[in-house]
Amino acid sequence: MALLEVTGLTKNFGGLAANQDITLSVEDGTIVGLIGPNGAGKTTLFNTIAGLYAPDAGRVVFAGADITGWPPERVCRAGIGRTFQITKSFRQMTVLENVMVGAFLHTFSPRQARQAALAAIEKTGLLSRKDMLAGNLTVADRKRLEVARALATRPRMLMLDEAMAGLNPKERQEAVELILFLAREGTTILLVEHVMEVVMPISHRLVVLDYGKQIAEGKPEAIARDERVIKAYLGERYRAPG
């Protein structure tokens, strides 16, 4: 059984069906990309899994537990860490303090939280900025901070919402390296992404949404050749290498 199993998930906002009957699974230890054009319902699906919205129908099962409709804090404790598309740093707290908040999930001791936080900060390459106020960080560093903070809760699966948006090519490359590093360490990753060139090479599987519906699922190479995906999203010019 896969680590995350989403079956028949539906979420409506008034008359708008943001997600219709989505079914996907994320195997333990893989990187799964969730892609689709603007307004396809990626972030809605993401937020429904993370507990920000309760679905209208369908089930979310994580590590064998039915977490459908659980509030975000319980989803986090079940082992799902997440970042936000528009970063939500604790601006008046330092980088270290931000990450310590995550680390306090597993301990009462500030000293232990500090150590765990420092480890997460080191992994994400923020060590030199650990005493800066989060509000003073660059966009790229704030995205790293989101990852570090989520990592400190020791998630089995990490959900990254548009981790590459607003980054320049060099920062993007560094972010990709970070994701690959975390995956090698055994963290399962579900990422919502816009930048195709980034998702294609690193994902084991891709799920494509369009207008709230799932139009394809499979290996990146297959997705890149899929007629419907090309029409809906990639445009005629995009051709998969090979």
Binding site: E73, C76, G81, R82, F84, V101, L105, R149, A152, T153
Partner: peptide, 9 residues
């Protein structure tokens, strides 16, 4: 940030 706080458990 209450939303971020919730996402951290």
């Amino acid at each position: 940030d209450p939303d971020a706080a919730r996402s951290l458990g």
